[in-house]
C-alpha cells in the first residue's frame, strides 16, 4: 500500500522537498502557480509516482528533480499542463541516477496543451551515471489532436463538450484520485 499525498497550489510560488523512504504517490495540482520540487529516493527499492497537473494563465514554471540515491528505486513522473492564454509555461524535469544506484527505473512523461498561442517549453533531462538503468522520457507541446476532436464530434458531441472531456482526461490522469480532495481544481477545469 502506497502513501498518498495531495498538493494543491492556487496562485502561489512554492518549493517542496521530499525524502521518500516508502512507496509514495503524489498528486500535485496547480492553478496558475510556479513551484520547485526536489525529491530524494532515499531507501532501496522504493517507488514514487508523481502526477503534476497544471492550469496556467500567466507566466509560470514548474521544476522537478528526482534523485535516485539508492539502488532499485523507481520513479514515474507524469506532468500535464494546460497553457490557457498567450503566456509562458515552462517545465524543467530532471531524473538523476547516481553511479552508486544500480537497477533503477526512471521514467518521465511531459505534455503541455496550448489552448491559444502561448509559449510553452519542456526540458526533459535524464542525468544517468549508470549502465543498468531502465529509463524513458517523452515531451509533447501542442493542441489536442484534430482527429480526436473529429471522432468525438462525429458522435454528436459539440466542440465545447469535446474540449471539456479532453481537458478532464488530460488533467485528471489517474483513476485513483479522490475527487473530494481536489474540488477547487475540478471547478477550475470547468472555467477554462
Amino acid at each position: 500500500m502506497s502513501k498518498i499525498l495531495y498538493v494543491i497550489d492556487n496562485n502561489e510560488n512554492k518549493d517542496y522537498n521530499y525524502k521518500i523512504v516508502e512507496d509514495t504517490i503524489i498528486y500535485h495540482f496547480s492553478i496558475n502557480s510556479s513551484s520547485k520540487v526536489n525529491i530524494d529516493l532515499d531507501k532501496e527499492g522504493v517507488s514514487l509516482y508523481y502526477y503534476y497537473s497544471d492550469i496556467n494563465y500567466e507566466d509560470n514554471s514548474f521544476e522537478i528533480v528526482v534523485n535516485h540515491n539508492k539502488s532499485n528505486t523507481h520513479s514515474e513522473v507524469i506532468n500535464h499542463g494546460v497553457n490557457v492564454l498567450e503566456k509562458t509555461l515552462n517545465f524543467k524535469v530532471d531524473g538523476v541516477v547516481l553511479k552508486k544506484s544500480s537497477k533503477c527505473i526512471c521514467n518521465q512523461d511531459n505534455q503541455i496543451i496550448n489552448m491559444s498561442n502561448g509559449k510553452s517549453t519542456i526540458f526533459p533531462n535524464l542525468l544517468i551515471d549508470n549502465y543498468d538503468v531502465d529509463s524513458n522520457h517523452s515531451a509533447y507541446i501542442g493542441k489536442f489532436r484534430d482527429e480526436d476532436i473529429f471522432y468525438m464530434e462525429s458522435r454528436g458531441i459539440s466542440r465545447d463538450a469535446c474540449n471539456r472531456l479532453l481537458l478532464n482526461g488530460f488533467l485528471i490522469s489517474s483513476d485513483s484520485i479522490e475527487y473530494e480532495k481536489i474540488k477547487d481544481f475540478l471547478l477550475e477545469i470547468e472555467n477554462i
Binding site: R145, M152, L165
Partner: peptide, 16 residues
C-alpha cells in the same frame, strides 16, 4: 477508430 487516452468509454458515450 481513434484512441483517446483519459476519456472513458462511459463518459464519452454518455456525453454523446
Amino acid at each position: 477508430p481513434t484512441v483517446i487516452e483519459g476519456v472513458t468509454n462511459s463518459e464519452f458515450l454518455r456525453t454523446a
